[in-house]
Design a protein around this nucleic acid. Structure first.
Lengths: 225, 225
DNA sequence: TCAAAAGTGTTAGAGGTACACCCATGG
DNA sequence: CCATGGGTGTACCTCTAACACTTTTGA
């Protein structure tokens, strides 16, 4: 008997809104099954495109967003995960910076919206599983690879980084120890620029130095929180 | 245009032969393409079986081996990775214990053989990529999860564990510090049994206590080398 | 001048790393 | 009795974790 299995790609796209909260991009489904329900963006792979190309294409079509970081997460293949037919889904997770985030939030054309990861609507298919796995992965990954910077503006005050980590990890962090540790890696450039956000002393801006990171990595010096 | 993509599963199965060396199970292909060349075992997924079921089935059919540990690795989907048509492969890696290992080595029925990971033949398709990724993953994973025990007999002398780690990590380890650290987790039961292997003082046997491991894990105590 | 956020050092304790000799057995 | 692999303790040093006050600005 001929194999009859469809292949789709789906992406859990994270954004960081320095309220602080971590958000996920969801779309409202236009067609059955699960019509009118929320789902993570994605769709079927075309015959001659790569999986990465497919996910970029779908995200552009459905949400207009462009990710700053993308990584394969897991492949979900349970035989009954789609009520129509056998569909396996190669899931990815993506990270976007706040400026992109803002644009995405305005793109109502396709009915895409950001949701706080602690306040999600019910999701179509097995998308809650996918989302849970993505959250676990991001949480674990920010402790040993510097992917957190992909959720911040290119130039950011140190407190944004602090808040991102303590929000994602779900626990308070010691500001002094955290700053000491991060700066000791020498992967951040301190800029001669300050930013003031309402009350309080203005903060110095920092920039993640990717070249320096790769150099240090090749010397065996690892990022780790 | 209708989607026409095939889905296969492939598994990189590791065994540990306390020579010491780490081996991978390969099969010699019977049919084109790449007829007569070595490849990692795998095959097409049936319409109504799960991906895990598919990989277990294929491994039984092709090599007669039963894995002690299996984990999804990555999904390879480049449009040209199979010369016949579009095929995406969900890759897994598996670990087997030496007793299973021995049986597998004898199962010549399907022309399956073990190869030292440092002395491999050229591989069909993109299987070298898959293998590289699997090796990287296993190497990284044994440092933060106790999967190494799935490569040893249920009861093993401590030196087997030492040799496994130093072989996989590709560097010498300090015997005293390693033993101190591993035993400090309290995940190993020391048995009242010794084993003698040729010359030298007989070694005490140990056993990995899985229940204790999960208990400690739930208390937040993590395995880490 | 007050509220709010940024910036900054020290100390005690835990954990990691380096290191060498004796023990038990088989041949 | 000798070759081979098994088993063990200590000291230094680095890294982590705990902890509170001063500075700079906007309102």
């Amino acid at each position: 008997m001929e194999q009859d299995i469809k292949v789709s790609v789906d992406a859990v796209v994270f954004g960081y809104d320095p309220e602080p909260k971590v958000s996920v991009l969801l779309i409202k489904r236009k067609f059955a099954p699960y019509q009118g329900e929320w789902a993570i963006p994605g769709g079927f792979v075309k015959n001659h495109e790569s999986l990465e190309h497919a996910i970029y294409r779908e995200l552009t079509e459905e949400t207009g967003i462009i990710m700053d970081y993308l990584e394969q997460l897991y492949t979900f293949g349970h035989p009954n995960r789609d009520p129509r037919s056998r569909v396996i889904s190669v899931a990815y997770f993506g990270l976007v910076r706040p400026d992109t985030y803002k644009i995405g939030a305005a793109t109502d054309a396709e009915k895409a919206e950001w949701f706080d990861i602690n306040d999600l609507p019910p999701l179509a298919f097995d998308h809650q599983n996918i989302l849970n796995k993505a959250i676990d992965r991001v949480r674990a990954k920010i402790t040993y690879e510097p992917i957190g910077f992909e959720l911040l503006d290119e130039r950011f005050p140190f407190s944004d980084l602090e808040n991102l980590y303590s929000t994602l990890l779900g626990r308070p962090i010691d500001r002094r120890n955290f700053r000491k540790k991060i700066l000791s890696f020498g992967m951040l450039d301190e800029l001669d620029e300050k930013v003031s956000r309402g009350a309080g002393r203005p903060a110095n801006l920092f920039k993640f130095n990717k070249e320096r990171y790769f150099q240090l990595k090749s010397e065996g010096i690892l990022f780790e929180i």
